[in-house]
Design a binder for these strands. Structure first.
Lengths: 232, 232
DNA sequence: CGCGAGCTTGACGTTGTTCAACTAGAGTGG
DNA sequence: CCACTCTAGTTGAACAACGTCAAGCTCGCG
């Protein structure tokens, strides 16, 4: 949620330029480049902080980030985990309130920070570009709703299965991956206790649905996992 | 969520025309009028159906609707409840998939159905109008996230308190209202069993936090209710 | 070698769901 | 006008799901 997935449009390192130039002129793009900065973030560094004013949009060129909400009692919830390339913090472009949640690096990231007002001006003068961004934003919105629904009517096992499948399909793009989240973070993502995550995963290990050792995960029986996700 | 609240901009019966004319010409507005239809829906009638193609945007002039998601096992979840005036189904304008959920009348409604493509063309040629709609859409998105977070880290009582407060503040605009939802629907909204809703409400009745008889609700001690919402 | 953070496991208590029984009111047909 | 039925609402008890706690483990690092 809250991200724009540009993968269907572009794949190389210069993807930001390529998509922008479908809608805006070279001159306008140079204006974006002049007012933006390139930054590198290490694991656990905060890219956009909950409660801050949303003055910038972040284009993520490489890496993985989590969207983290912290409540009054310092309890965290991970709203989503996303891999590059994506546009982060898009909704804040238009919504005037402070950031609802933090965006934190889970793996090292390369980020381009762009001034919100510069991009906003561009969109106001270019309906096609605005509608295109709106369309990817709607897609992200749909994922958010699906997440919400999963949380609402599934039990722990269904939710944990959803997360493993999500990570495999949308973040690591493989049935075999090195997970950069701790068990506690997995629990914050599935909205349950770390113990529950561990119990479920080791149960699946003995049932040969997954295979894991330390940080390495492999989905062995994806049909069974999807079935667990479905029945909740 | 998923609605555009135009109340801050306009209040009379001709509100659709008034907002549109801030951004588009009379001629364009006539095109919208020509391609749209006015309909009345009675309680429990389906306005937009889950799974259908999103061919229209619905402008709700009067009434109250629920956003209803039905899963494979015929279990319903109410994602949101909203009162006129609102624009319904906005995200579907841009997202090409089928409707994620149904929009169903909870009270009698007057609805204007507008052809998606006509509105989309207009937005492509008018960045300012597109950005304005995007901004209200972002606001609705924020509410969706807050809903999600409430569900994720609060227990039943906190969630039910959230719903009563939401209904009072955002739907009925009063501490005293006639609820058009059944207890079962309240449960579908709070994601718990009807028994749990009833137990909680009657407990609050004896504690003089609310007063209810049949469909009539009145919040007596709003501070206590907000406290319950806060501590979860 | 020892410390600490993250991981794992099992026992236990709390929370929430399910089930079953009962009540009240609305609608129907004799 | 009175059974009859159907639905919504209500209550309590049994049961299952989940979180919390406490203890032990593993591994990396000083």
């Amino acid at each position: 949620m809250y991200t724009w997935d540009m993968e269907s449009i572009l794949h190389n390192s210069n993807w930001l330029k390529r998509i922008a130039l479908q809608f805006i002129t070279e001159k306008d793009f140079e204006k974006i480049e002049r007012t933006s900065v390139n930054l590198k973030f290490k694991k656990n560094e905060i890219i956009l902080k909950q409660g801050n004013k949303p003055t910038h949009i972040a284009f993520m060129q490489s890496g993985v980030v989590k969207f983290n909400y912290e409540n009054e009692l310092n309890k965290n919830i991970i709203l989503s985990l996303v891999a590059a390339p994506k546009i982060l913090g898009g909704a804040n472009l238009f919504y005037k309130d402070n950031n609802l949640f933090s965006i934190i690096a889970v793996e090292d990231c390369e980020i381009i920070l762009i001034d919100s007002n510069v991009l906003l001006d561009l969109l106001r003068n270019n309906g096609k570009f605005a509608v295109a961004l709106f369309q990817v934003a709607s897609d992200m919105f749909k994922k958010s709703i699906l997440n919400f629904i999963s949380l609402a009517n599934k039990q722990k096992e269904g939710r944990i299965a959803d997360i493993i499948l999500y990570l495999s399909e949308n973040v690591y793009h493989s049935n075999s991956f090195n997970l950069s989240l701790t068990r506690k973070e997995l629990a914050e993502f599935a909205c349950c206790s770390p113990e529950n995550v561990i119990m479920t995963l080791s149960k699946w290990q003995t049932e040969k649905i997954i295979d894991m050792s330390k940080k390495h995960f492999e989905i062995i029986n994806i049909e069974k996992l999807k079935h667990i996700s479905k029945i909740g």
